[in-house]
Design a protein around this nucleic acid. Sequence first.
DNA 1: ACTGCTAATGCACACGTGTGCAAAGATCAA
DNA 2: TTGATCTTTGCACACGTGTGCATTAGCAGT
Lengths: 363, 363
Amino acid sequence: MSSSSATRRVTDTRRSREISIADIARVAGVSHTTVSRALRDSPLISEETRKRIQQLALEMGYTPNAIAQSLQTRRTSTIGLVVTSIADPFLSEVVRGVEEVARSAGLSVFLSATHNDPAQEIAVIETFHRRRVDGILVASSRITGEYKQRLDQIRVPTVLINSQAESQYELLHWVAVDDVAGARLAVEHLLTLGHRAIGYLGTNSRPRSCRQRREGYQAALASAGLVPREEWVIVMAAEEASPQEDVLCGRRALQRLLDAGVTAVFCQNDMMAVGILMACYRRGLAVPAELSVVGFDDIEMASYISPPLTTVRQPRIELGRLAMQVLLDLLQDQEGCNHVLSPMLVVRESTAQPSTSRPATRR
Amino acid sequence: MSSSSATRRVTDTRRSREISIADIARVAGVSHTTVSRALRDSPLISEETRKRIQQLALEMGYTPNAIAQSLQTRRTSTIGLVVTSIADPFLSEVVRGVEEVARSAGLSVFLSATHNDPAQEIAVIETFHRRRVDGILVASSRITGEYKQRLDQIRVPTVLINSQAESQYELLHWVAVDDVAGARLAVEHLLTLGHRAIGYLGTNSRPRSCRQRREGYQAALASAGLVPREEWVIVMAAEEASPQEDVLCGRRALQRLLDAGVTAVFCQNDMMAVGILMACYRRGLAVPAELSVVGFDDIEMASYISPPLTTVRQPRIELGRLAMQVLLDLLQDQEGCNHVLSPMLVVRESTAQPSTSRPATRR
DNA sequence: ACTGCTAATGCACACGTGTGCAAAGATCAA
DNA sequence: TTGATCTTTGCACACGTGTGCATTAGCAGT
């Protein structure tokens, strides 16, 4: 009994029951109904009692119980945000944009990571569904066909951000950046500088963006009447989709690229470009004098490294904001429409005219 | 009427009521009590009906309503995480550690940002309280005395991570890195290399860590019988506590440091060090040959820039994991204890012996 | 004085789940 | 056969809030 009472005491101390509208009602000598209405500024309540009760609530330190409200209204004012990795510099800006818009709309956001594992992705979504979130955002989703049925059951308004899944479902909405166009911008920039032997470095950890950026790369070369040689295109195998892994891929790939004889390389993302730059620093290869490097994403780091990286900017915060905005529309029963954002080339100092090849054609 | 019915239809389509244990009970021909117990593997239920009901729940695609459960059990299995900025590379690792441990303990985490504004910090905490989170984590808190009363009312188990507030409350628990010791490590490293004119560069946007790291800096110099000249110590004024702002501070400070005649500089954080490195790159100053630079935090970027940055590592993920662990203890009515983690020096390539000063004393 | 109307309030139920207690049925011992 | 014990189930209430409907009071009009 002593242990039981001790436990009780601790519990009571810590969880000293929150005061409810019933408590306020008791003190004010009215029904809980009246309190509920008064706090919600219902026109049914007289000016006088409303003021009195609101004042009382303040004095008693009342905080509405959002759980009870949610149960009643069947709305949680809550959304779930699923990302592959929280520490990814690309995603954290997206998260920031999402949180910003969500917060100003009075929504709270659950955050969870999946480590690029489709099974975990579904698990997280199911957890969010259990919590009855009003909507779900998924960044870099890898949901494949086998989960379609489960998603159909859940049926929560969902918006994908830069989905990596190859197939689309009419149920899901999405927001994405035009990978093909972005890649074209990057490669056209290198072509303009005079490069002809241009490599592509990608990773299979984000299959869709890898494929599309490669398509853009090839299209740009084709427009210039060039066909990339097989050894110019390198797609590294990586199980994780982490920044560390990407850098490592970049570092490992430099030798192969040099062997292939390229004078410039377009990387699937900035972290891979960083890996290339590190490898160049190690072996004393001057960038951009001896090798031009272009990235993709324009993460913060891109402008802080030496030399500052020429890259293709994805409007990361905008991507998050927009996705959240689309979700907000869906939550208000409006028709959500999908968006393709245009990326933009940011020329910094990791690209220049080729020196080892013959001089570029001047016009 | 037509518009009303249309609205109704849309609503019904989208929010086709989730099935509840009552629905299962109806189909199974038992009471909802039995279903509830069967799903929770209560020993009160016979093996046979339990199996039958669990199977039925599966077939009917039942997902427990966590909101209703929370209302009943007075536990949400939810925590709130408050950060100053989501995109901060230091914090995102902390968030990662928190989420990792929380998730494996079956807790979901709300994330919200305050932009280093104490008022918003309180607002976020109140929102979390409304949602009846079981606990709260605050990174780089700036809660000042004026909010103490409000916090007393709320009384949710709270753990601070690297709090920036100068005063402590016995109510709150905390986890932090030993700033003084970290700074000593950095400066002693520079002293060992032979530097004597060592600068300190800080920012007032994180007042407590600025003060403590400066103390460590001065203590280390004092141990070597040195007293820093006034112009060696620069504390930049910044309203925002953002990575961008820190870099800018670093870039702006270089000239003043050079004017002060230092051969090495210890920066309050890595981003400021990055700013210094950028400024050096711009003016063609060789690092570490002409100036040694040490940072603090060891964010990912530190190892990726050129030259790789010598810095003091804060165990960022550990910080997040540990804070969450302490909170878990508190949630189980165990006594939570505070922790001071020891930082660690990571020597890379931004530090070397001074060349412009007289040779260091060899032993 | 009676009717009709408006304003203000409370009753009772709903949201979906968990649990103490009673009750019914089953089993067993005497 | 009876009483006792155990197993299994359901009733009824609780958690805290929102809302349709009934009720009461007040007031004006006839």
